[in-house]
Design a protein around this nucleic acid. Sequence first.
DNA 1: CTAATGTATATTTAAAAAATATACTCACTG
DNA 2: CAGTGAGTATATTTTTTAAATATACATTAG
Lengths: 292, 292
Amino acid sequence: MNVRQLHYFYTIANEGQITRAAKKLHMAQPPLSQALKALENDLGVLLFDRHGRKMELTKAGKVLFERATHIFQTIDDTKTEVKEIGHGVSGSLSIGCVKSCFSYLIRNIRLFRTVYPKITFKLTEGDSFQLTEQLKKRDIELAIVRLPLEIDDYASYKIATEKYVAVLPEKWAKKWHKTAISIEELTNMPLLLLHRMSGRGQYEVIIEAFQKRGLKPNIICESPNVDMILGLVNEEIGVTIIPQSSLLTFHHSGLKILPLLDATIESESMIIWLEDRYLSKSAIQFIEMFET
Amino acid sequence: MNVRQLHYFYTIANEGQITRAAKKLHMAQPPLSQALKALENDLGVLLFDRHGRKMELTKAGKVLFERATHIFQTIDDTKTEVKEIGHGVSGSLSIGCVKSCFSYLIRNIRLFRTVYPKITFKLTEGDSFQLTEQLKKRDIELAIVRLPLEIDDYASYKIATEKYVAVLPEKWAKKWHKTAISIEELTNMPLLLLHRMSGRGQYEVIIEAFQKRGLKPNIICESPNVDMILGLVNEEIGVTIIPQSSLLTFHHSGLKILPLLDATIESESMIIWLEDRYLSKSAIQFIEMFET
DNA sequence: CTAATGTATATTTAAAAAATATACTCACTG
DNA sequence: CAGTGAGTATATTTTTTAAATATACATTAG
């Protein structure tokens, strides 16, 4: 049995007649008669009960017709589905994102869904290094990361540049009555820093800002988790310096946010992907949304 | 997209390599490369991400592979199923049966299932005329009926010949202290008879037995339902004459069964089917079981 | 009994798939 | 760092397979 024969059988069963089926299949009647016979022969069952020019499905024929209907429906659906994936209007999109960039991701997913409602998302969270590993393994197609990061292997598009801000417990800030804070003022305070678990990250950038001024920060805690750091600040354990957008997901009641006075430590966020590799149409469309 | 191409794709995805897949498909590598390319072209998606000699499924490719796996599994199952139906080891068998022959049917179904456990049954009940109509409509393949019946259009096999017996209320029978009863003795009793709703049936045969002796039976009730008749006998409304096997399904506590003394009204039970029509292998096997 | 409609068979023709020959590409190795 | 091997791609020829043509056969309706 081959599928072409099955398709012929399906059409004959639908039309109830070989001649009519042949017309529908854009072919002559004799080859169709033969194909049907060959199929019956191969399966070892009569599929039609013929008397004269009346054809009636046998029991086996009825079963085969049911199954064939299902099979061709599935094949048809599959074609459509895969084509849609190809055109980027369907399918799923795997994106990794560092926690401090969640706000960018969420905003763009909302926008993307208004244009491509059939696309679903698979999201993972991790630090920049972990995400690049996931890119290489092709677990994700796109990653939204924060610089600095070794990105030679990746194509990238910069989605935001933003300043780092100092976050102080509200009580501490009241003593100053200031609207901004300098690096020097921060030196004397206990400092809590985001520290990536792997690779060179933002941590080093902040240290450099102090070192440039001959200062040595008083780092008392490092953590890869922004929520934890901000929780500690809230408990008046110390202050921190983080990208502004990292605050968006944190409900900050007892925190005072101050821009840095004499230094602009900047953070770049990028969306990155593997260069020279197949990128799904939907991923391309997702990137393009950032570009506009 | 055609299914041959899909099959090629499926094999390539399974083997992870075109050359290896070509070997498995008993063909050379170049046509396989081309077929894959044609499929990708037709669907408008890259299915594999090629770098050098490494091939990796794209997102669309992964989806297609999943679907293809399911499709080919279904096709394979279908082949097996239809072949099994063809050989009569699987499928379902539709049989109609008159109520008074239930015992024959049940006995043979039990036997049949020990040999062909995969065959399922679809059973209907009706009088002989109704069953022949169902045969013509092909709602059932086989019917077990009781003669007399117009059976010119059908192939048949006689499964049993049995005598009619008289059934009396136990109390009435005690007066006689006999082990058999004559037609004449029955004439004076109120008679309850099975009467087929349609067509000529056993009813007429019984009437004839009386008429041959110049007697006129005292028929006070007709019903197509054996249970109802026997219920009425049990309530001492009257007596009845029925084929012996009709009693098997009835729980008879207050009934006396007596053979007919001076007449043998006989009933033939047959299994019948449409002549010159396709009969499923399983139906043929079912008939053969009666013949042995 | 004949015309019309549908199916089956045999043979020829055309289309499509596969083979052959060969070029190209990358990765590994000495 | 050229050479080799394993794999893929392209162009052309060959083979296979499916379809068309011609025609015979079968059944039903008028």
